[in-house]
Design a protein around this nucleic acid. Structure first.
Lengths: 214, 214
DNA sequence: GTCTATATACGGATAGAC
DNA sequence: GTCTATCCGTATATAGAC
């Protein structure tokens, strides 16, 4: 009993299954190098298993990729849906929560932004397919609160899309550009993370200034 | 005479050379899809020439790619070097010039950001190789002015790297995320461009607010 | 310089033994 | 379930005719 998960019954072997090892290796390589540049042989080697097993478990490279991609997208979106439609938090709180949530996620998975952006560009249909973003953002309670606040501050001159874009730009872009930032700023990995932690506090303050009356 | 360029002497044929057509097609495909996902056959077809010519002119796919990449990087950097070290412009003017320059460039070449970011991640050595960014940013006159201004505003609490990151984030990221923004905001291409044009004015204002004393 | 035809390599996928 | 050996399509690159 104990920690034995409720997976397939045959999994009474010792430890982490080959299937899981393949997925972990595939996630790392696909997320880092993209679909075309990743070879199934590399995945197999990284997973420490045989190439044939990959096809045994996942049928094809493409099927495996689709699986990873869905999980990556899900991870990227999950939580935002709830944060944005929480009826009990103020606009300011939502911004703080969102920025904190994203930065925390991206510190652990810094390759996600480029992966998602590349995927969407290479096949924009992925956006509609799941209706991933539209209702999450455009029709969200967050958007409603943002528009109201802009009206209260007499900032109807400013398109709310700019504010949305700025939140995501300042939060996500630094991770996509991490190698440049570390190189230019002469930052080690830990220092970079420290800078990103600072931004959890700073970005909401900056956004508030943008919205504030002139 | 007239418009005849001073290229190779044998180029006394009628119009745009095959070599140029290949480079143009290669730039478009490489920039859009990356190295691995682009096939030399596609380049040849897009250029309207035979596959063998590609190797005749450029020896190999990789050599051709390196050429395109260098030019893309150059285009991305060129101008910034001068803008940042102009002794005769104020900090505010530099920010305005930089944002205007980048957004104008990116409206024409919206695929450049992802291309550059992908290339750097896949091979961070490219950063050092040319010393592309370091002295342009860190040791620039712009950086000096920024640090001085932060001191004058009694904002020594804020690491200047944040301001740099914010300028580039707000300027560049929207182009990398263009498909998402257009989808969420229900923007046609022209409307997206219009929004980006607005940002030429807005971003410098926002940055000024970030630097301003509390 | 430009083409056709082809050599060569590589990567995804499968057959079949254990 | 896991391995070895191998097949086969595809993509790069070149040889050689014109």
């Amino acid at each position: 009993m104990e920690k034995r998960s409720k997976k397939s019954q045959q999994e009474n072997t010792k430890d982490l299954s080959a299937e899981e090892k393949i997925k972990a290796a595939a996630r790392q390589l696909f997320t880092k190098k993209g679909y075309s540049a990743t070879r199934t042989r590399d995945i197999a080697e990284a997973a420490g298993i045989n190439l044939a097993l990959l096809n045994y478990y996942f049928r094809s490279k493409e099927k495996l990729f689709d699986l990873i991609m869905l999980e990556n997208f899900g991870q990227f979106i999950h939580g935002v849906r709830n944060l944005f439609n929480d009826k009990n938090s103020s606009l300011d709180q939502k911004i703080e929560n969102l920025v904190d949530f994203y930065i925390s996620q991206l510190i652990v998975n810094p390759d996600l932004p480029l992966f998602v952006l590349n995927e969407i560009r290479s096949d924009p249909k992925k956006l509609q397919a799941r209706g991933f973003f539209r209702d999450i953002l455009r029709k969200s309670y967050f958007m409603q609160q943002l528009v109201e606040e802009l009206a209260r501050q007499k900032r109807t001159d400013i398109n709310p899309i700019h504010i949305m874009v700025n939140i995501f730009s300042m939060t996500i872009f630094p991770f996509a550009a991490a190698p440049i930032i570390c190189y230019v700023g002469e930052l080690a990995e830990q220092e970079f993370i420290q800078v990103m932690e600072e931004r959890k506090i700073l970005i909401p303050v900056w956004i508030k200034k943008m919205i504030a009356a002139k």
